[in-house]
């Protein structure tokens, strides 16, 4: 039996609770027995060493907040658990509060899974060193490409290969905006409003449209699968706000799409910028999909595509990390 503490109970945390409940029987058949012994978020928390019903937590969240009074410190100091799942909101500048939570759990000697890019962007190397020093596993598939299993693909299925380069679409919001601009020949400002109404873009879209989110994911990939010691300041970043309808039209009439591409190569160059993509190239994708084209020394080119965001999709990546840790 593995005891789990969930740190963060927003969209992703609730998605995880939903699928851990839905997949209970399948997990049992796999010989896995997970017990949630703590759930905490910014408002409060629940602790029960005998196990918490995920559906009960979802009920509480539907009505309001978790009971006040229980904080992260209480969990780390008084609850026995084996795996910590950290899904608090991303802060790309400081990595907090996730960074402190992850460090505390690793130091406590438990395995950690996160969907939070911030801590990895800020302190990838430190966290890996800390995990190795404490003999625990630290997994973060959900941080890049949502349900698109890019990290485990390289770590497991392409084991033994050297990754020569990776280029891809890692931000669904930008990709949605660019593909809509292309299809309807509407200006950026109008498509952005539409995306905001649909909940695809945030009220403040800077993080997505200026390429910062893509840069963060690129930094994680560069560190995790290419062995490049890089931070966000090492990425040359150009966003999509300067793309005009006329440019889109001109590109389209000549057989090109324009997409925001993140790319990393063996020389350690990291770049996020809009690129011209031949219409029939695999990266000329529409909508909110994510994709990565990976060049390897043995397997040649490998292309992967999937849903880059979403409650259940992201939770799927967390569940996959959880099963991988436990088997």
């Amino acid at each position: 039996m593995q005891r789990i503490v969930l740190v963060g109970c927003g969209v992703v945390g609730q998605g995880f609770l939903e699928i851990i409940s839905r997949k209970r029987n399948i997990l049992k058949r796999m010989g896995l027995d997970f017990r949630i012994v703590g759930v905490i978020d910014s408002s409060g928390g629940v602790i029960d060493e005998n196990g918490i019903d995920p559906l009960k937590i979802l009920e509480i969240k539907k009505r309001g907040n978790l009971p006040e009074g229980i904080r992260f410190e209480d969990v780390i100091n008084s609850v026995d658990f084996d795996i910590g799942i950290e899904v608090t909101p991303t802060n790309p500048d400081t990595g907090e509060p996730g960074l402190s939570y992850i460090k505390a759990m690793i130091e406590r000697g438990v395995d950690v899974i996160t969907s939070n890019k911030g801590p990895l962007i800020v302190a990838y190397k430190d966290l890996m060193r800390l995990a190795s020093k404490n003999g625990v596993q630290f997994k973060f598939e959900a941080t890049v490409g949502g349900a698109m299993p890019v990290i485990s693909l390289v770590e497991r299925s392409l084991a033994g290969n050297q990754i020569l380069s990776i280029e891809g679409i890692f931000n669904g919001t930008s990709n949605y905006i660019l593909s809509r601009m292309e299809k309807e020949l509407l200006p950026y400002s109008q498509v952005l409003l539409e995306a905001q109404e649909l909940g695809i873009a945030e009220k403040d879209p800077t993080f997505d449209v200026e390429g910062i989110d893509t840069a963060g994911k690129l930094v994680i990939l560069a560190n995790a699968i290419m062995g490049i010691d890089a931070g966000i300041k090492d990425v040359e970043i150009t966003g999509i706000t300067g793309i005009t309808t006329e440019a889109m039209d001109l590109a389209q009439r000549n057989g090109y799409a324009i997409r925001l591409i993140g790319e990393a190569n063996r020389e350690g160059q990291l770049k996020v910028s809009p690129k011209l993509i031949p219409r029939f190239h695999p990266l000329a994708l529409d909508g909110t999909l994510n994709a990565a084209l990976i060049q390897t020394d043995l397997a040649g080119e490998v292309f992967i595509i999937g849903r880059g965001a979403g409650k259940i999709e992201t939770a799927s990546a967390i569940l996959s990390d959880l099963i991988s840790i436990s088997t």
Binding site: S165, E167, T238, G242, I243, A247, A251, Y256, I258, I261, E263, S273, P274, K275, L276, I277, P278, H281, L283, L293, Q295, E301
Partner: peptide, 9 residues
């Protein structure tokens, strides 16, 4: 002037 390059591959 924003210069948009083609993808490498």
């Amino acid at each position: 002037i924003l210069v948009i390059e083609p993808v490498e591959t």
